[in-house]
Write a protein that binds this DNA or RNA. Structure first.
Length: 259
DNA sequence: ATGCCTTAACGTTTAAGA
């Protein structure tokens, strides 16, 4: 089984590239983030024409996640159980489904904006709610994984230059501690291989030639339980999708499993 | 071999992204 996660930065703007990629990579299951559209506006027909069912959690202008599957889509959940609100709103940041015998979550962890900003506290609360959910769900024999845009670089090796992130979100100790707490419920970071250069970065800012200069970050992660991790045969970052006109600022992370 | 930011929205700019 091939399973992938990709922050598409608007599913509407990315539809041509997403469609072409689904046809060429032929993943069985895809977790999408940053749909930037409502559930009603999601291009389910175009996706369906390629053989995929869609589970969509979308609230409009920002956020939004989906699970696409061509191996079944059942026991669906929309939203993070007992997740925090931000500014009184319930943002669309999580969706879960069982696809072909694998339980998956597609998550878009809050950005945090600035250290000390209310969104940063919300980010940490959101991660704690995710940890509580994973603590209940990860144990057991079924392969289980939380895939998505975590908006955290787990280690200093996961950013192109640690000094460029002094005082920034995404690299702080509390964020990394929240990730470790999540792993401690029994999840392993499935490290993808890069197709070029030394670090499997998954995100490069659109500005200042960051992609050509490989000024990237690894913030799109796959956290799998023991049965999931044991089934991994390969994992890689498809940097080809970051190239050219009409690219997202994130590349897909692709995981091949032998179940 | 990659190209100097992109997206959606009550738009003539703003907020958000990370």
């Amino acid at each position: 089984m091939r399973i992938a996660t990709w922050n598409v930065n608007s599913v509407s703007a990315r539809l041509p590239r997403l469609s072409a990629w689904l046809e060429s990579a032929r993943p069985d299951v895809v977790c999408l983030q940053e749909l930037k559209c409502s559930a009603e506006a999601f291009p389910a027909e175009e996706i369906s024409a390629l053989g995929y069912e869609s589970l969509v959690n979308g609230d409009g202008r920002w956020n939004g996640v989906a699970v696409l599957s061509r191996v079944g889509l059942s026991d669906t959940v929309l939203g993070l159980p007992e997740g925090p609100l931000f500014d009184g709103g319930d943002e669309s940041r999580a969706a879960a489904a069982t696809c072909g015998g694998v339980r998956v979550w597609s998550v878009y962890v809050p950005n945090g904006r600035e250290v000390g900003h209310p969104h940063y506290a919300y980010k940490l609360e959101w991660l704690e709610a995710l940890r509580r959910t994973a603590q209940k769900e990860a144990p057991g024999p079924m392969p289980y994984a939380i895939l998505g845009d975590y908006n955290i670089a787990p280690t200093d090796d996961d950013v192109y230059d640690r000094s460029a992130f002094e005082g920034s979100t995404h690299v702080t100790e509390p964020e990394r501690a929240a990730l470790k707490a999540l792993r401690d419920v029994g999840l392993t970071d499935v490290l993808p291989r890069p197709l070029k250069y030394d670090h499997p970065f998954t995100y490069w800012d659109y500005r200042q030639l960051c992609f050509p200069k490989n000024r990237g970050m690894r913030i799109d992660l796959v956290y799998g339980n023991a049965p999931f991790s044991a089934a991994v045969r390969d994992a890689y970052v498809d940097r080809e999708e970051r190239k050219g006109k009409g690219a997202s600022d994130h590349a897909p992370v692709v995981v091949d499993l032998e179940l």
